[in-house]
Simulated scan of single mutants.
Amino acid sequence: MNKEKILIFLEFVELRTKIASVFPMMIGFLWTYYHYQQFNWLNSILFAISVIFFDMCTTAINNTVDYHKAIDMNYKHEENVIGRNNLSFKTMIMIVFALLAVATVFAISLIFLTDFLLLILGGLCFFLGITYTFGPTPISRSPFGEIMSGGTMGFGIFFLAVYMTMYEKLLTSVHTMGNINISFAWFEAMKIFMMSIPLICLIANIMLANNTRDLETDIINERKTLVFYIGKKNAVILYQILSLLPWIAWLLYIVSGILPVWSIISFGLIPKHYGSVMRFKEKQTRETFPEAIKSFTLFASMYVIVLLLASIIG
Rank of each mutant, 00 (worst) to 15 (best):
E14V: 07
T17H: 04
T32H: 00
Y33I: 06
W41Q: 09
L42A: 07
F47P: 04
S50V: 00
S50W: 00
F53N: 12
C57G: 15
T59L: 02
A60P: 01
N74F: 13
H77V: 06
H77A: 08
K90T: 13
T91C: 11
V96L: 01
F97D: 08
A98Y: 00
V102A: 10
T104E: 00
I108M: 07
L110K: 09
I111E: 05
L113D: 07
L113N: 00
L113F: 05
T114Y: 12
T114K: 12
D115R: 00
C125L: 05
I139Y: 06
S140K: 10
R141N: 03
S149G: 04
G150A: 07
G154C: 00
T165F: 08
L171E: 03
H175C: 12
M177A: 06
S183R: 02
F184G: 06
P198E: 09
P198T: 05
L208A: 12
A209N: 01
A209C: 05
T212N: 10
G231Q: 04
N234D: 06
A235L: 02
V236N: 00
Q240E: 13
S243P: 10
W262T: 11
I265N: 03
I270A: 00
H273I: 02
H273D: 10
Y274K: 08
F280S: 03
K281Q: 00
K281G: 01
R286I: 14
F296N: 07
T297P: 02
T297C: 01
L309A: 00
A310C: 05
